[in-house]
Structures are given as C-alpha cells and as structure tokens.
Design a protein around this nucleic acid. Structure first.
Lengths: 129, 129
DNA sequence: CTTGACCTTCCAGTTACAGGAACCTTTATC
DNA sequence: GATAAAGGTTCCTGTAACTGGAAGGTCAAG
C-alpha cells in the first residue's frame, strides 16, 4: 500500500512517516517501480507502535530504543520498565513545574480586576521580582 | 555596564540577551566606543521583567505583548489579564495531557515485573493499540 | 488526452536558545 | 611595553519533531 494509506491506518501523517524514515527511526520502505514507498501490514504495525509511544510522550529517541527492545526476543523487561520509569519521572517534573506556574498565575489573575484601568498586579509582579 | 554584568543581574545569560535583541524582543542596547553593549539600570529592570515572565512560562511573543502593555500608561488591566488567562488555559491543557500519559504509564509499569524475562506488558500495550 | 489526486525530493520555518569559530578590546601582570 | 587572560563582537550550526510549500514525476478516471 502507498504512504497515504499507511498514514490513514497508522494514525500518522505521510509527512511524519517520511520524516521517521529520513531520521532513521524506521527502516527505508521498499519502493514500487515508480519509486513510490510501499508498506506492508508489518510496517503498519510498527508505525502504530510508534504512534502509540509518541502519544504517551516518549521521545523519538525513546521510540527507537523501545522498538529495538520490541524486536529483541532476548530482551529483559527490566530494560523496558526503566525507560518507562524515566519517562514517568520526566513527566512528573514537568507537571510539577506547570502546576507551580499555574498556581502563581492564578493568584495574580485573581488580584487583577481586569477592567479599563491601567492598575495591574500582574505587571507589578513581573516588574518587581 | 557590559553584557555579562547585565546577565548576572538579570538572571539571563549573555547569549540569551543578545538573542532577545536580535529577535526584536528588546531594543538594541547602546554601544561603547569599542562596540560593546552597554546596559543601564532601566535595561536591567526590563531584562528581569522578561526573566520573570519566562519563568512563568510565557512565550517570548507573550513577553513582547506584556512589555508593550507594561510601557503603555493607557493600558487596560483587562488586556493583561486576558493574556495571563489564556496562558493558564494552555498550562492546564498541558497538565491534563501529561497526567493522562502518566496515569497510563504508571498502570503499565505496575504490570511489568521488570526482570530478565522478555515478557513485557508495556511493549504489548504499545504493540496492540 | 487531460485533469486531479497522488507520489517524490528538497528547502525553509517553527521555539528559544546553546555551542563554537574567528576575531577584536580591555585589563592585569611581568 | 609586551603579553596573556578574560570578555566582547558577529555569524553559523544544531537542537526536537515535525509542517508547509515548491517543483516535478505518476496514476486512474472520464
């Protein structure tokens, strides 16, 4: 099947699939006589795998490691778990940072009357710290 | 004062200050005879303002808008509040997305025994969806 | 045979900088 | 005064993960 079919089935875009190929995340697709990329069911499976992993916030680099483990029949599940746990930690830190920002902003927004007057606690805060 | 002093006082790096100048976020600094950038206390104030806003997650574009409002004596606090509220919404969406990822990953990690064996619920999940 | 929908490659743009090269100035030291 | 270290300058490249678009080949339908 051609790339737009593969895109539709995998949930990725054609652009993204080409990008993954060019960046080495996936192997070069086989080509038709005219030079069109040609995908098999097995390829779609891989593409879906990547799509799912990206949805869970894994980096492309992580995806590459996960795919490699996926293909490795001798893998240790501990290696997979370690990648996932690292990722959970990263996510947790991001959440913490965002919640801190949000808390501060909400406090500031509450103090700002938000009308026609120039008086603004938000700008004051930005200006003073 | 020169750029490294300005960097130290504002909490930004010299690289970042030059970048902000080149991208139009701040006005070009005045120069010494030798061509060195020269900063005043007022400049430091602006740089700190930006640093604080960036710490709160505002984009550089947002910072430009906030600075413009900051300089505008005729501003309506409602305009500032609107930018902040938009930003809070963005942050909230990011937090929601990250928490969803984290929840899913935690469930998967819990199911994975994480030992030498290849059997791995995490890879299974990535593979099946 | 033409039209439109695909496909291809390649280049630029996005965000917010960091790293580094090549080169000039200032300051401190000998 | 010579020199070396420290700091300044500009300019180019790289980062992450794509997206948009140009120029041009291909395929299926009417």
């Amino acid at each position: 099947m051609n790339i737009s079919k593969a895109a539709a089935l995998s949930g990725l875009t054609a652009k993204t699939i080409r990008y993954y190929e060019s960046s080495g995340l996936i192997a070069p697709a086989s080509r038709s006589a005219a030079g069109y990329r040609d995908y098999s069911e097995a390829d779609i499976h891989i593409l879906k795998f990547i799509h799912r992993a990206r949805d869970l916030g894994f980096s492309v680099k992580d995806c590459k490691a996960l795919l490699s483990l996926y293909h490795d029949r001798q893998r240790a599940s501990a290696d997979v778990k370690a990648i996932a746990e690292d990722h959970i930690n990263e996510i947790s830190h991001k959440i913490d940072a965002l919640q801190a920002m949000k808390g501060t902003l909400q406090t500031l927004v509450q103090k700002c009357h938000g009308d026609d007057r120039p008086d603004c606690p938000i700008l004051e805060d930005l200006s003073l710290k």
